[in-house]
Design a protein around this nucleic acid. Structure first.
Lengths: 190, 190
DNA sequence: AAACTATGTTCAATATACTAAACATATACG
DNA sequence: CGTATATGTTTAGTATATTGAACATAGTTT
């Protein structure tokens, strides 16, 4: 960031996405309608406490309002050119799946970056027996269910599980979530 | 966060770590000494723009000052209890290495969370031939050198490289960095 | 000890964030 | 059409964030 963040557009975006009016957001956040209007048009330099109240009223984290436009995620390799990395990116039902690992490693070891919109879910069929998944939560909170077991993990947490059963990753919260996933296929096919 | 962030302690921590006086930070940030004093003792609710100036003066990101105490990173497993996950954590030369993967997977597939203090570096000897490392930058910017090649990657970026040569990950910036690392040993020992 | 320097705190003045109420504009409704 | 409702903007007043200067305190120097 070269300049102080202009958060007006961010707030407007979240408020619009939720279909909230200034009056409603004012009630929910405890910030006056007039102030909201001025902040959204960047006419004032709001206080941290005020922006925090607005974030709570919108159901997002303070960070989400302060972030400038998110930088594009880049994929690099120091390996010989033969091993090309992929830039595939699919979005389905509010879940964006970005494949980090090269195509040559498919069904061996795969790395993904998963971005969940609020209340988005990613269900998966059982994989080959012995397959495992390793999750590291980068942002937000998600709930993971694999067979009969489930766990709720949040930013910074790590979770591993066998995924040769039906398994689902769900973002039950009203805030976006980002998860790093490693899939390891049939590790012990000795 | 249940309450608006109290950022006084955070600023004091960074300022102390850099050995800066209020006067010096005032000059660097363009925020008056009086204001800095009051913010550090949480007597006022500073403006976002003001906190941003202070962050720039300290050479950190706005986020670093707003973060409350970072939650402890937890490690979970949905697998049978036989597969125990580790909680090992080593700090050396400003780099904290947290092993995420269980000990049973050592020298097969290993997952780490690396936290770099400003200007900290993690050099490594060559691993077995064919070994590869996969990095995803979670926070900040790091420079990776493997043999003759090198690249600078930032938050959100992904990088893979063969690490059967000497390789180093360095945080050259004045801000902390966090990197997710996957090490895959000898993938093609067919 | 007195005088000087360096650091952080408080004070009085000013700029501005923030609020409640009035205003503008549009759409629905009789 | 006129009235009512719903939305966002502007206005005037108040609370407070911010500042330069004075103050307090401790450590050094002579």
């Amino acid at each position: 960031m070269e300049n102080p963040p202009m958060i007006g557009k961010n707030i407007q975006k979240f408020r619009g996405a939720r279909g909230l009016t200034l009056n409603v957001l004012s009630e929910r956040s405890g910030v006056s309608k007039a102030m909201l209007s001025q902040i959204e048009s960047d006419k004032v330099n709001p206080t941290v406490a005020t922006v925090w109240k607005i974030a709570k009223g919108l159901g997002v984290e303070l960070q989400d309002l302060l972030d400038m436009e998110t930088q594009p995620k880049r994929i690099f390799s120091l390996n010989p050119a033969s091993e090309v990395t992929s830039k595939l990116e699919k979005t389905k039902n509010g879940v964006t799946i970005q494949i980090l690992s090269p195509l040559s490693m498919v069904e061996d070891l795969e790395l993904y970056l998963l971005t969940f919109e609020p209340h988005a879910s990613l269900p998966s069929e059982p994989h080959f027996p012995g397959t495992q998944e390793f999750l590291t939560v980068i942002k937000g909170t998600v709930k993971v269910t694999a067979g009969d077991n489930s766990a709720e993990i949040r930013k910074g947490d790590f979770l591993m599980y066998h995924c040769d059963v039906e398994h689902t990753i769900t973002n039950e919260s009203a805030q976006p979530a980002v998860v790093h996933m490693v899939v390891r296929y049939t590790p012990d096919r000795k």
